[in-house]
Design a protein around this nucleic acid. Structure first.
Lengths: 283, 283
DNA sequence: GCAAAAGTGTTTCGTTTACACCCATGC
DNA sequence: GCATGGGTGTAAACGAAACACTTTTGC
């Protein structure tokens, strides 16, 4: 079979093809959930096009990697994060979506537990934005974001989406808020609790095991708990078009009066069993 | 901004790029439902690689069309079919999935009503295969097929998948079989009937409007009802690796004893209303 | 008449929904 | 004490599952 391409070493444009080829990138919408807020990770672009604007981490797909591997590599390079769950969102292929050349992108979404640390090898600025408070995005990333939210809303019926977003231990009201944010509804507090407990997918964390320092404790906690890399004001020339994320006024958030909720964790045996039997994870 | 590519007229390989580029194709899994059988459309490849083997219709994506437009164009070119519903299935990007060069494909699935006529401009051989009776497929199309079935199984909860596959008018037992095939379960005949009627999404076709010639009638019907382009034996040199579809023994299928079911059609107002309100379409 | 398929009705059971009530915590 | 949030219980309402009975058709 005759090849349709060749490689001319030393030429200005060394890769030569019989037919026109487009470029392929991957982009990744990374979700996490912390302080009852669903957030996505954005990086500020360091190069044209859209220099200084916010975008999802991503980049060109290499010839020797699958699309999924490319998305995970870019994620790691730009944010040092490893995702437990990464799923394809879809292809975005508008002809003019990139001003440089014809570029199609394969979008993924990933779910990670709150970890705090975000910083890429290339020292690009990265920050978590609440989903209800997104800045203007580069390229057609607004469309990608909307697709990701829609997709989350669907997948939550079939996958235990929530448990990949929550911390290792969490409270049932936390879980409920997450479901409410994703689905855009509200549930009766008491019915939700009974339903999720009845499913048997949670196990209570014994009192002894509970971490001494919980949410909203004193100074030592601060350092590791800060999830946002606050863009230091004045550290770089920031185009006025791209403000940083709106941070919570007080951080960590002040505890409000009310009984302290019990901590739970995922019952992994029960979860595996439910997945095996194809049960749905609707609450 | 400097370009990363150029175009050298007259050269053997005129399209030149600074970085290596991969090729992008689209493929389309087309479903229909007829005689209580769920079928997909395959074409026999006329060229290497995999010459003579069965594959989904598809081809290279052009620089001036979106992926979805490309999938629809290829579908039209190869089968003369227009699909009411076409949805992205996912990207298949294994590094070695095409022996010619690095090619990633964007797979789609489409749902069409039984129409009978199948024949492409390029006169490639096309045939419907029952999903439970698929031949060996070219490339990684077996993987694509499995993804399509899985996807159908999911989407049926949210979209009225069935009504895009069924004829304009249909019986409730037909609808039930379709759901059973897709979901791999069985339903109680009586409960299914009540449930689907209670949803209000169907309207009964008045007796007067019923087509005079129904299923399994005499000769005049035959010509237009034949859905398969039977591969004429001996019309072309067929590699033994790629046998044609297994056809029903008698066609049209012989009617069995039993009461004749009433005909229904989709109530479009009710359907639009349900879609508006985000209702699920589970039966 | 008989078997097979379709249409209608009823009864039972489990799940969901809507609340009432009590417990724990910060101010 | 009081407002706020968390945990447990219960009764009514709704929808799903199971099944009996009737009608219509081919042979």
């Amino acid at each position: 079979m005759e090849k349709n391409y060749t490689y001319a070493k030393g030429a200005k444009y060394p890769y030569q093809y019989k037919y026109e080829h487009m470029a392929v990138t991957t982009d990744c919408v990374i979700f996490t959930y912390e302080n009852r807020t669903l957030k996505v990770l954005l990086i500020r672009r360091g190069m044209d096009p859209y220099k200084g604007e916010w975008a999802f981490p991503g980049g060109f797909l290499r010839m020797n990697e699958t699309a999924e591997a490319g998305a995970m590599r870019e994620l790691m390079e730009e944010t040092s994060l490893e995702a437990s769950t990464i799923r394809e969102l879809g292809v975005f292929s508008d002809v003019k979506r990139d001003p440089r050349e014809r570029v199609i992108t394969i979008a993924y979404y990933a779910l990670i537990k709150p970890s705090g640390v975000v910083g890429g090898d290339d020292a690009a600025e990265a920050a978590w934005f609440p989903v209800q408070d997104m800045p203007k995005l580069a390229f057609d990333h607004q469309k990608i974001f909307e697709a990701a939210m829609e997709r989350l809303r669907r997948d939550i019926h079939f996958e235990p989406v929530g448990f990949n977003l929550l911390d290792e231990t969490f409270t049932i009201p936390d879980l409920q808020r997450l479901y409410e944010i994703i689905l855009g509804t509200t549930f009766d507090r008491r019915n939700f609790q009974r339903k999720v407990l009845a499913s048997g997918i949670l196990e209570e964390v014994p009192k002894e095991e509970e971490p001494v320092l919980e949410c909203c404790m004193a100074e030592p906690e601060m350092a590791s708990k800060i999830p946002e890399r606050r863009p230091e004001p004045g550290s770089a020339p920031i185009p006025e078009s791209a403000p940083g994320p709106i941070l919570e006024e007080t951080f960590p958030p002040k505890r409000r009066p009310g009984r302290i909720a019990s901590l739970f964790r995922l019952n992994k045996e029960k979860y595996a069993e439910m997945k095996e039997e194809g049960d749905k994870f609707e609450f």
